[in-house]
Simulated scan of single mutants.
Amino acid sequence: MKTMIKQVGVAFICFLMISCKTSTTQELEQANTNVQTVDPMIVKNEEIVNVALVYLKEGEEARFEEYKQKGGTILEKYGGKIERIIAPKMLAKGEIALPDEIHFATYPSIEVFNKFNEDPEFIKIRNEYAMPAIKDISIFTSKNTNFKFERETGDHTKTYGVALIYFKEGERYVKQFEEYHDDVCKIMPEFGTHFERFIAPFQSKGSVEMPDEIHRFYFDSMDGLQQMGTDERMQALFPKRDEALQNLYFFIGEASL
């Protein structure tokens, strides 16, 4: 993976422009009181995707692995699952500390999501394994967007991209990005880019500001991405993209699940 990243070059970084301090447990809990939310009734009976940027304390990887196994077992009892775990290897856009892991967990509904988080057994496991292992965490509870696309599913052998997207204020910029995105999505599959998730957070917890959208996709090859970054059609669309966005964090990494 590291060799592949070195081969990416400036053209790849140009393309990707599309789409920490140590804390005690008490400090972590205090940081996590920074909550942004909207009425969860807007997603009643809809699938929920929870996204977490996880920063681990040094030497606590094994404890956190045990948390994932034990917590995942309980999650499955509620009809949910850990859908994807990505270990970022580089930040292609933005200024933010690189998380150790990015988690995507799915739930049948917001009601199930809330019941799971109130489960006494899960709370016990979280307090015993997760809290001592985590240095910092930001969580975005999300719903599916109305963007229509052919969803494909990769595997742990693929290279993944995760984009946290922040629009400039004003409906015109949202519409402009949608138009840009419709155009690039017609081009990107030609170069082996596949789309897994397009979701919109409606509540968040932690120090990272809640994005307007989160996109996840995977790549067949880095060579294909380099070629796409220099494609004339893509180059012509970049100014439209840049004008619409206030901020963008773009992570590239490997999937462990």
Rank of each mutant, 00 (worst) to 15 (best):
K124E: 15
A200D: 04
G224M: 02
I137D: 01
Q36S: 06
K6N: 12
A62Q: 15
H215R: 13
M228F: 01
A62Y: 09
I102G: 02
I110V: 12
N144C: 09
F250V: 13
N146Y: 11
P88W: 06
K68R: 04
G9M: 05
N32P: 04
P120Y: 03
E232V: 07
Q176L: 08
A97N: 14
F250L: 12
T73Q: 15
K205T: 14
I134G: 03
I5Q: 08
T145Y: 06
D39I: 03
K124L: 11
L98S: 05
M131T: 13
A200P: 02
K68N: 09
V112N: 10
K158D: 14
G79A: 09
Y160A: 03
D100T: 15
K93T: 13
V174Q: 12
F147W: 10
V184F: 00
A11Q: 15
G9P: 02
E243W: 04
A130W: 02
E196P: 03
C185L: 06
M131Y: 11
G170Y: 06
H103A: 08
T37A: 08
M131C: 09
E76Y: 07
S221I: 05
N50Q: 10
E171L: 06
I110E: 02
V10A: 09
N247Q: 14
P99Y: 11
I125Q: 05
I110N: 05
P88V: 07
I252A: 09
R84W: 12
K148V: 14
D231P: 03
L28M: 09
P201W: 03
E213Y: 10
G80M: 06
Q26D: 15
F140R: 00
C20E: 08
A92F: 12
E29S: 08
Q36L: 04
A105W: 08
N146M: 12
Q246M: 00
F238L: 14
M210A: 12
E121S: 07
P211R: 07
R84L: 15
A52F: 06
E58K: 14
A105K: 11
E101K: 15
F147S: 10
K240Q: 13
N117Q: 04
P211I: 02
M228Y: 03
L245S: 00
Q235I: 15
E128D: 15
A255K: 06
L28P: 04
V162C: 05
D183S: 15
E29H: 05
K143A: 10
S142L: 01
G9I: 03
G224P: 03
E190A: 14
A133G: 10
C14W: 00
S221Y: 07
F116R: 01
E61A: 11
D100W: 10
V49F: 04
K124M: 00
E66C: 08
K168Q: 00
M228A: 08
T73A: 15
K158L: 08
F113T: 01
C14M: 00
M17K: 13
F238P: 03
E179L: 00
T37H: 11
K143C: 07
A87E: 14
Y160T: 03
G161W: 02
M1S: 07
